[in-house]
Amino acid sequence: MTVEMVTVGAERVLRFRDMHSGHAFRVATPGADPEFWRRYLAGALRVYSRYGVESALEYESVADGHSTSLFFTAVDHDGEVVGGLRAQGPYAGAEQAHGLAAWAGEPGEDVLRAMIDARAPEGVVEVKAVWVDRSAAHRAALGAAVARCAVHAAWLLGARWSFATSAGHGIERYRSSGARVAEEVEPVAYPDERYRTVPLWWDTHAHARHATRNQSALIVLERAALRASGRTCPPLSAAGRPAAR
């Protein structure tokens, strides 16, 4: 399948608006949008700390942005960042996938490693540090929009596959955007015993078959908006260097 790609360069911020929640989304490398990168990380740390799982962010190792290929921020009508995610990759193989560490020494590690390695030639992008502010307006719709960003991330980075790990409470939201649970891999207690975490895969070549009708339609509309913003948005006046992959 041939798809018109959008280059996410260090000098540009791509944009789309979620029709259901009304929130604006910004997509950029950390170097292109450093202020929003800091605000995104601060929000992620605040939300993860509330549940005592801030260790899952790997904050100290990712804060410089070097491991992040691009990130998405959701911005409300007051200009506040109220959600987002970041993406790493595309990966050359399983040894680069941070999510695999949750299965280290656990049943399913070899199966998941083989899955990542098998998909790597077509491109695997890992989605991490997903969050939505508890006080955000239209929070359910916003959560659905953030889930769609997992599909956008792989597409923008020229990869077929998006990979993430999720505890049980997030699975249905991700499924709505086309994610499939890797049923062959046993869940693990991560980041602690309160959670049963599973691996998820999005196939950008087949998301329409697995996503809900509404989510699939919105992915198409938002992809068009990202294309349009990539053609029309001017370079930032103070662009940083591209984030290393």
Rank of each mutant, 00 (worst) to 15 (best):
P34H: 15
V6I: 04
V6Y: 04
K128M: 06
F25A: 06
T7S: 11
A153F: 03
G105L: 13
A206Y: 03
A145P: 04
M1A: 13
S216G: 06
V130R: 05
F25V: 09
A118I: 03
E35Y: 05
V13W: 04
A243V: 09
A120H: 14
S49L: 13
A87L: 08
H152C: 00
A140M: 06
A118P: 08
Y48E: 06
H98W: 11
H210E: 03
A104V: 10
S67A: 07
R209G: 06
E95W: 09
A145F: 03
A239T: 10
N214C: 14
G230E: 12
T232W: 05
H23G: 02
D64M: 02
E122T: 01
R119G: 11
L142E: 10
D78K: 09
L236S: 01
Y48A: 14
D33G: 07
G84W: 03
G31K: 13
H20F: 06
M1H: 13
W201N: 03
N214L: 15
G105T: 12
V81Y: 12
T197M: 01
A137N: 04
H210D: 05
F25I: 12
H210W: 10
R46F: 03
A94F: 08
V62M: 11
T197E: 01
A28E: 08
V8L: 10
E172F: 09
E126S: 10
V62Q: 11
R39K: 15
E172P: 01
A10H: 13
L156T: 06
L100P: 10
A120C: 15
A101N: 11
G105I: 11
V47D: 08
S237Q: 08
F72W: 05
E60L: 10
A118Q: 14
E58P: 02
A244I: 09
E172T: 06
R227D: 07
A137D: 09
D64C: 07
V127L: 04
A147L: 01
S55G: 06
G9K: 01
H138C: 02
Y51N: 13
M5L: 14
F16E: 12
S67D: 06
P242Y: 10
G158I: 02
E4Y: 03
G79I: 10
A179K: 11
V53D: 08
A94Y: 01
R119I: 05
R39D: 10
T232C: 09
G79T: 14
E58V: 11
V220L: 14
S177N: 03
L142V: 05
R12C: 01
R113F: 00
Y51S: 15
L200D: 00
S216I: 02
